[in-house]
Design a protein around this nucleic acid. Structure first.
Lengths: 154, 154
DNA sequence: TGAATGTCGTTGACGGCGCAACGACCTTGC
DNA sequence: GCAAGGTCGTTGCGCCGTCAACGACATTCA
């Protein structure tokens, strides 16, 4: 191990602020969703991803990848959402191992009812604090980090 | 509820990239710490916070606040770290309800051994991808979000 | 064709975390 | 001085997530 390149003061502060700000933000959004819709953030993301998929359906594997979770995470999320009636399971036609998750009408309605409050919270705690230039820069930064870490298994 | 101000395309992309990039980054750092030091990110933060405290000791309540966790989270983290010998519990002198957590010599050594790898990972997955202007902007953005959400109970 | 290898989704075991409730202790206000 | 109410740290409970292992099925390749 060579000698260590520690973080500069500016980097240190950026890192702490990023860590703390992110944690607080996610917590706040999770609470908002839990309180207003009785749903977790992962569950919400599953609904969003499904709602944007062709025919509102997706294979479990693709769903897991889309929400950056594991297969077992997807299984359990879909099981929860299925119990609530927002999602339905069907078998794949071309691959008899496969299962597809499909957004139900009730699920689409739930999402439509939940989205405004969530978006409002995202605005209030994030975008209302940012200038357009901030947003552009943040998008660029976050995309770089994401793509860097996504390269191994895209 | 008035009509909804949805996210602009640019905001939408920034938001998704931020969410995904953050999740991947935290995962990567957590894995690195787990693999190289057998320690979680919260545990690592506890060690860092303690190492920077006067006399390397802190009350449980302050510790919980410092790592943005709950009292129970702090209790369990300290219990874990105590079992490993990195942290020691002592009673408060002026408040007989209180408990203080103190970083041991072994804990300080552990932190010194762990920090270089962690910092390297933070660099590799984040700051090496950023220009100085990016860092300054990120710091500003994150600080705004953090302070906004910290106001209710500082 | 058929065996070896890989992938799919699920499950059991395990651990982390928040919530609520608890006993112990402190503080306030009369 | 003391009762009422607040705060401290801990713990039982339940939820959620990952990991490892599994049976079922697909794919590959000789």
């Amino acid at each position: 191990m060579d000698e260590v390149r520690w973080l500069e003061a500016e980097e240190q502060q950026a890192w702490r602020a990023y860590l703390d700000g992110t944690r607080l933000l996610i917590q706040a959004l999770d609470r908002q969703l839990e309180a207003d819709a009785g749903i977790s953030m992962l569950d919400y993301e599953v609904l969003v991803v499904l709602s944007e998929a062709p025919d509102r359906r997706m294979r479990m594997r693709d769903l897991a990848d889309a929400v950056l979770s594991t297969r077992s995470g997807a299984t359990r999320a879909v099981t929860r959402l299925e119990r609530l009636g927002w999602v339905r399971r069907t078998e794949c036609e071309d691959d008899r191992r496969g299962t597809e998750a499909e957004l139900t009408e009730a699920g689409a309605a739930k999402l439509a009812a939940t989205a405004p409050g969530h978006v409002a919270a995202v605005r209030a705690n994030m975008f209302d604090l940012l200038t357009p230039a901030d947003v552009a820069r943040l998008r660029s930064i976050a995309a770089r980090v994401r793509d860097h870490l996504l390269r191994p298994a895209p």
